[in-house]
Design a protein around this nucleic acid. Structure first.
Lengths: 167, 167
DNA sequence: AGTTTATTGTTAGGTACCATAATATTTACT
DNA sequence: AGTAAATATTATGGTACCTAACAATAAACT
């Protein structure tokens, strides 16, 4: 998603303030700095996954399967847990199946259903990524103390719980 | 971007820990909570903009133009400040121009160049959005004290400055 | 038992947001 | 004058979504 690299300068803020006198500059700047940082972190994760030949969509589907008993789940369940439509899940499954990382297994009790399951190859792939992923995430997060992390996450949760103020 | 709605449960974490004993659970959970919050905030902004008939890409281009003297800038400059390629900018400009929000003005001194400028309609559109946007962002951010915001942003900046640890 | 309703997953078609590579035009350099 | 560099666009393609319509099946109702 497009997001400005260039944060507002004091000059451009003065300009904005002149045209929109009621603006709360501090709030608007804080907000964009927050968005910018979030986006940078997400993009860094993209880059890490790309090194392992994965993209975010497929990655999170694999992680969801890893969490399940038998490493398997239904498309509907995956859709709910991933927060996308079933139609979107179909695409991800197609792509993962094409690489042999998951299979569609027919449900014996209900012929409408499929069980999506990690293959041995899929699990092997995760084994080759997750330890490295864990280590790097741990390295990154350890640049903050536990207290700082608590405070940061607590603030973020406060914001999230008030997001209806934007709508 | 796909991002899990479903955060890990203690059960799934135990499972993960069994398979990957070196995992730093706290770090991995903190990281996904951070991503989840960031994504929620970004999506809430999408929703706010959608109400005004805009999407993030076009919105940020308009904001960039608003910051410039004469509300105008070159495609190359916009590309740099937005952090996308010039080819991508061409698409955004096409779309904005189709709605009459910006114009392409030929540069009199260099016939390769165009100046992208907000139209009166574009400015009117911003005038109809920005005060509302400002007010809502201000409302949202005011759920945190200035100190909390400072701490949160400072922590985020620390993380961003160490992102090379992921790569 | 037969009909309607609901559920499951896929397909079809479309949009937004990006990238790379190739191209045309124009300017700058030597 | 000839080559190199810069500017913007087009062409092409990929990822990540969506909605709406569909086919198959199962469940509920009468």
């Amino acid at each position: 998603m497009l997001l400005l690299k260039e944060l507002p300068t004091s000059q451009s803020l003065q300009k904005l303030s002149a045209r929109y006198p009621t603006i709360n500059i501090r709030a608007v700047v804080d907000f964009i700095v927050l968005l910018r940082a979030s986006s940078d972190i997400s993009q860094a994760l993209d880059k890490l996954l790309a090194k392992h030949g994965l993209l975010q969509g497929r990655w999170w589907i694999l992680i969801l399967l890893l969490r399940q008993t038998d490493y398997s789940s239904s498309p509907t369940d995956l859709a709910e847990k991933a927060g996308v439509t079933k139609a979107s899940i179909t695409g991800f499954i197609d792509s993962l199946q094409a690489e042999g990382l998951v299979t569609r297994v027919e449900d014996p009790t209900d012929r409408r259903k499929y069980v999506i399951q990690l293959t041995a190859l899929g699990l092997k792939k995760l084994d080759s990524i997750v330890p490295d992923y864990n280590h790097k995430i741990s390295e990154l997060m350890s640049t903050l103390s536990l207290t700082e992390r608590d405070q940061m996450l607590s603030s973020l949760k406060t914001l999230v719980s008030h997001l209806e103020r934007l709508g």
